[in-house]
Design a protein around this nucleic acid. Structure first.
Lengths: 206, 206
DNA sequence: CTAAACCTACCCCAAATGGGGTATTGTTTG
DNA sequence: CAAACAATACCCCATTTGGGGTAGGTTTAG
């Protein structure tokens, strides 16, 4: 039995969600709130497994609410359900601690599936949202430093980024630490910097 | 009609995938490769819509292959299909340009669904992978270091993260560079590290 | 009021890093 | 083939950093 709470200021959508949840044999609605303020006060007492949350609400918005509640009771999982697919909003919600993010135009079936996936430790997202999230990883890829630095130099920079000392890198790669130093000096010249941290900045490893 | 290529060195799994694809009325298998090297050579000529790729292969691995092919033909979408759920591997694949990442223990139905989702601009992921990806966003927020480090220490770490030398930080903050050093030493003790880069790692500034 | 924490700043010394060379060995390429 | 580049490795020396102490002044909490 999955204990669910709903925070949604739009009455029509809230009622629809309530009906949907009540129709499920393996779910139990333990709370429904029309404002984030009210939810923040009450949810710590009713301890739902999952909170379905809108973001755009009068007064406190859903992001702030999730931030507060996630901090108070980390075990609660949040499924954001909103009409907004704005990039900033998506990432703000995820940073706040939401693990699922679906759009309101998803069908009932898809909402139920998302709840179950979230309950089972997954991270349900509408395809469009998922794509946004994934793209965030490949985005800062187009660093041109692959043309500028040699393979070996990149390799050494990567170990440097992990916090290894020159001599540690040297023994990892079976080199003299003087060699590692030489590579680093060449890197500095190419990137026009003068220490490790600056170099890591330039290549986006920092 | 979705044009699909398969890169998979395990013969049994490759054959199974081929059968699965061939059974779909809306998909067309345009290539199957047992090594990444071969795939890198041929795929630019056959131009599939989607490449289903293994990662762990003899010789060139899937990450390198995706990096090369994505660079050559950005329009091709990659669906990584592997037994590995290792965190580094997941993020390496996403950075390389993969948009889907599913585990081999997903059912046939789920693989077909993933292909279609990918073709429609989504980013299909196994629930466990999706959770990893999402967690990456909420991770580097309020770590505990605000409780551990003082305001001044955080301030100095932030300047350190920008690549400034101790003495540069010192003159910025109108301090002796010995004072900056003292703060850094205290930081190192608290974070249990022994140099700047490691410290930046611990607090998520790297 | 006292203790604790924080910020400041100095001492000494060792280790690590940065900056300047040079040199040998391959490999690639015009 | 010669030139250019890459990777390796050594030299010297200055600067920076890390690790150990100590210590005075201020603010905060018990």
């Amino acid at each position: 039995m999955i204990k669910i709470a709903i925070v949604e200021d739009n009455k029509i959508f809230r009622e629809a969600l309530i009906q949907l949840i009540n129709a499920q044999s393996n779910m139990h609605l333990v709370g429904e709130f029309a404002s984030a303020e009210y939810a923040v006060k009450e949810i710590p007492h009713i301890l739902p497994d999952i909170v379905i949350a809108d973001i755009e609400m009068n007064g406190m918005n859903g992001i702030e609410m999730i931030t507060i509640l996630k901090h108070t009771i980390p075990a609660i999982e949040f499924l954001v359900c909103t009409i907004h697919d704005n990039t900033d909003m998506v990432f703000d919600a995820l940073r706040a601690g939401a693990c699922g993010y679906i759009l309101k135009d998803s069908g009932s079936e898809s909402i139920i599936k998302s709840i179950i996936e979230l309950y089972n430790g997954g991270a349900p997202m509408s395809p469009f949202i998922a794509k946004k999230v994934i793209s965030e990883f490949s985005r800062p890829k187009q660093n041109n430093f692959h043309d500028l630095l040699t393979e070996r130099e990149i390799e050494i920079l990567q170990y440097t980024a992990k916090g290894l000392l020159n001599k540690e890198i040297a023994s990892l790669l079976f080199l003299s630490n003087e060699t590692v130093k030489s590579h680093l000096r060449n890197i500095y010249v190419k990137l026009q910097v003068s220490n490790k941290i600056e170099a890591l900045h330039k290549v986006g490893l920092l």
